[in-house]
């Protein structure tokens, strides 16, 4: 590990030459390893102390004498005269591939492809919709961009879109993280642009949906379902997951069949400890 040890002026007994490096030290440790300490100057002219701990192991491999003999063959053809060892122009190492055979490979993989298909179906007749005025242009191009604030509760609307399928869930999930910050003056009251929103998010029943935040990133949808099912029939559990890592993003939406169950769950589960974290449960904000 490189370690910048700036010479302490108090340690300098004499004004010795700062350009002189201490000699390399090799120490034998009782556990059979060796510690090598070397010093050098880095580009910035600072003294660098490098301490390396090295264990030497000798690996003996037994091969067939025929194989050993072939290993000694001199190269021929296009490789004639080349030194031993792989040549980078012909041989390279690919990226790591995780290969774990599994007996239910097919079923697990099928779901994935189905999901993908549904995503494609969802997006097929999806039109670009402005988040500000719901026009068919990108939000950035909206003529009201500077005059109207975007729809207030993007988070809730994202969850609502999730109702219609996995695809929209992902889309909504992204929107959610993006729009999670709400300016202070807009908190708790309706934004000016909200009245213009709605659209297909309107026909969604948010009454019995809880928003759960501060969820452990190792949480699973099934765990959440188990936890909340105690209070009544859960119609839907949506746990936002990171697309790359597959880990939970830290929030989830739980829809109950009955609002009173949801209210009870909200009351009981708020502040509930789960996976070293304290859950925060509240009713998902109604969009529009």
């Amino acid at each position: 590990m490189p370690d910048t040890s700036r010479a302490n002026w108090a340690d300098d007994e004499e004004f010795d030459d700062p350009t002189v490096l201490p000699p390399q030290q090799v120490l034998s440790n009782p556990d059979g390893t060796k510690t090598i300490i070397t010093f050098r100057f880095n580009d910035a002219g600072k003294k660098i102390k490098t301490t390396r701990k090295i264990r030497t192991t000798i690996v003996k491999e037994h091969v067939n004498p025929r194989v050993a003999e072939r290993k000694e063959w001199s190269k021929f053809g296009a490789e004639k005269g080349h030194a031993r060892g792989p040549d980078l122009s012909t041989t390279s190492v690919g990226e790591n591939i995780v290969f774990r055979p599994s007996s239910n490979w097919k079923s697990s993989n099928k779901e994935e492809s189905k999901e993908e298909d549904s995503l494609r179906d969802q997006l097929k007749d999806k039109k670009v919709a402005c988040r500000i005025c719901k026009g068919d242009h990108f939000t950035a191009r909206c003529p009201f961009k500077d005059t109207l604030p975007p729809l207030d509760d993007v988070a809730a609307s994202g969850a609502g879109a999730g109702d219609s399928g996995n695809a929209a869930e992902d889309v909504g999930g992204l929107g959610m993280t993006k729009g999670s910050y709400v300016a202070p003056h807009l908190r708790g009251k309706k934004g000016a642009g909200e009245t213009m929103g709605g659209g297909n998010f309107k026909d969604r029943d948010d009454l019995a949906t809880l928003r759960v935040t501060n969820v452990s990133e190792f949480a699973e949808e099934n765990d959440l379902r188990d936890m909340f099912e105690r209070f009544g029939r859960v119609t839907r559990v949506f746990l936002a997951k990171d697309r790359e890592t597959g880990r939970a993003k830290g929030f989830a939406f739980i829809s109950f069949a009955d609002r009173s169950d949801a209210a009870r769950a909200c009351e009981k589960m708020d502040g509930f400890g789960y996976g070293h974290l304290i859950l925060r449960v509240e009713f998902a904000k109604k969009s529009a």
Partner: peptide, 8 residues
């Protein structure tokens, strides 16, 4: 190791 021995 993927080293090329030769070509024919």
């Amino acid at each position: 190791n993927g080293e090329r021995l030769g070509t024919y």
